[in-house]
Amino acid sequence: MESNKINYVELPAKDLAVNKAFFRQVFGWGFKDFGSEYTAFENAGLDGGFFQADFCSRPQTGAALVVLYCEDLEGALEKVKVAGGTIEQEIFEFPGGRRFHFLDPCGNEWAVWGELK
């Protein structure tokens, strides 16, 4: 492990089973449970996990925005919709790429970005 580097991220989830199913279906993540109120995600690009909580993570309330990269932005957007996510912001361009924002089934806000076509 490297000292002074981001090592792990934790996010709230009102329903661990629902969030696990969503991220498994949309992004192919795996999970390892640690008791009934915590699950670590695997194959997500960064180590982290979900903890059982009755609140959610939103940038509007001061939380950090976790941004995922995907080569097929339109495909990712469709997978999010099919799996029960809510599109918070449709695909838009920004300097250096395009992205969209979505809410997972527990209400956490995420973004997915891709390169300009």
Rank of each mutant, 00 (worst) to 15 (best):
E2Y: 08
S3P: 05
S3N: 11
N4S: 08
N7A: 15
L11E: 00
F23R: 13
F27C: 12
F27E: 13
F27T: 06
G30Y: 06
D33W: 04
F34Q: 03
F34G: 02
G35V: 04
E37M: 10
T39H: 01
T39E: 01
A40M: 13
E42N: 06
L46E: 04
L46G: 05
D47Q: 14
G49T: 09
F50P: 00
F51Q: 04
A53Q: 08
D54N: 13
D54M: 15
F55N: 08
F55V: 09
C56P: 03
Q60R: 13
Q60I: 09
T61A: 15
G62Y: 07
V67E: 03
Y69V: 12
E71F: 02
L73Q: 06
E74C: 08
E74T: 14
G75W: 02
G75M: 09
A76H: 04
A76N: 08
L77Q: 10
L77A: 07
V80E: 03
E88K: 12
E88M: 12
E93H: 15
E93A: 15
F94K: 14
P95C: 12
G96I: 09
R98W: 06
R98M: 11
R99M: 13
F100E: 00
H101L: 09
H101K: 14
L103Y: 14
D104W: 01
D104Q: 01
G107H: 03
G107C: 05
A111M: 02
W113R: 14
G114C: 04
L116Y: 09
L116M: 14
K117Q: 15
